[in-house]
Design a binder for these strands. Structure first.
Lengths: 206, 206
DNA sequence: CCGTTATAGATACTCTTACTATCCATAAAG
DNA sequence: CTTTATGGATAGTAAGAGTATCTATAACGG
């Protein structure tokens, strides 16, 4: 197909497609002449993936490119790739480095739940920053509340891993992990709001 | 205190403080002369809240201002305020309107979990868009997986509501709901990644 | 008392991100 | 054979989040 049709069936404007081509988020079409190229299903699928990740997943173009690079890579080692995929999924938070005290609170939480976090993992600082932000925002996150969240997170991690075990193809697993991480986060956030609104309705009849 | 000290103890640069003053995220200090103002604890607290919401919560300055407006308002009706607070917490996703079919999938999910969602609620479209994005990304969200997420969301909603019931002051509740919604989302996302990494470690020894 | 430093507030400038718009030379379509 | 549609390069734009400057004045340090 030509670019116009690709645009129509993907819902991405022609200039944006050209932009993604320039930025390396989409592979070039097969040139049939110096100014004509043919696109196929692979381009369409990639564009759908890109728009899902950026529009709904909220990823920047740069972050999306990095993720796609991981998906496209065919390193043989699944374990490595899972790690890269999880670590690569940004942008996480910004801000200053957490203090020792904040790290200690994060460690205490992860230990209470029997989680293993590598001391150098960015997740450790990330968690510390979030907890610290809750303090700074004037909401000392009471331990029971945070623990409830942790239990839910634990359950979800198990669900995710069980789900991934259905797949065997490496590239399929990779894509599932990446997409599941990014869009799963949005899904969870949205379901949480729905559940909250519904619970408010149930309790107070809003 | 003067602006330099406010900057030092909040970690926000003086130009940024001035920017927040211009944008209405921070109330002006008390003028002691045409070019001198005094700031107090209230300014410090507000700045901490703003930086927690923007840096960790990932809110834009505009979204933060809107939220603060809700927190500052003293409408007497708690029910209304909870609704406004929950609805006001953006930015949710962007993109095209969901189709009937996508809405139907969203409705089916909410119904399976006994949730009540007002037909005009933006949450309905939001959920439909996320589910649709999962399809578009090439990951048909298998029902069992989504249901697992929904159960976790349900649990969290209950935890949140139980937590809020500890408070009695209206403005305290409001702030807790808003902060809890925004930062709780980050906390949950982070815990989920920690749990995932930990589960990967447990299962595959990464 | 006085030179230096620190404001308040207004206006202008900058940097990044994510696109759009133009342009040229050729291809395809009617 | 005259429009319309590319591919690819270059330039322009609009929004968002600050920074920098500037003008009078205060406040401080000696």
């Amino acid at each position: 197909m030509r670019i116009a049709e690709l645009s129509r069936s993907s819902g991405v404007s022609v200039p944006s497609i050209k932009f993604y081509l320039r930025e390396g988020l989409l592979h070039r079409g097969e040139l049939t002449s110096p100014n004509q190229a043919r696109y196929d299903e692979s381009h369409l699928n990639r564009l759908r993936l890109v728009s899902a990740l950026t529009e709904v997943g909220g990823l920047s173009v740069a972050a999306t490119r990095d993720l796609l690079k991981v998906i496209d890579s065919d390193t043989a080692n699944l374990d490595d790739l899972m790690g890269v995929a999880l670590r690569g999924v940004g942008p996480l938070t910004s801000g200053t480095e957490p203090t020792e005290e904040e790290l200690a609170e994060a460690d205490s939480l992860t230990e209470r739940h029997g989680w293993y976090v590598h001391p150098d993992s960015p997740l450790r600082g990330e968690l510390a920053r979030v907890l610290s932000a809750l303090h700074r925002a004037g909401n000392a996150p009471d331990q029971e509340w945070a623990d409830g969240y942790a239990r839910a997170a634990d359950e979800i991690a198990r669900i995710d891993h069980d789900y991934v075990e259905n797949f065997t193809e490496l590239d399929e697993i990779l894509k599932t992990v990446v997409v599941g991480t990014v869009l799963g986060e949005r899904l969870l956030a949205t379901l949480r709001r729905v559940a909250q609104a519904s619970e408010a309705h149930r309790r107070y009849g809003v």
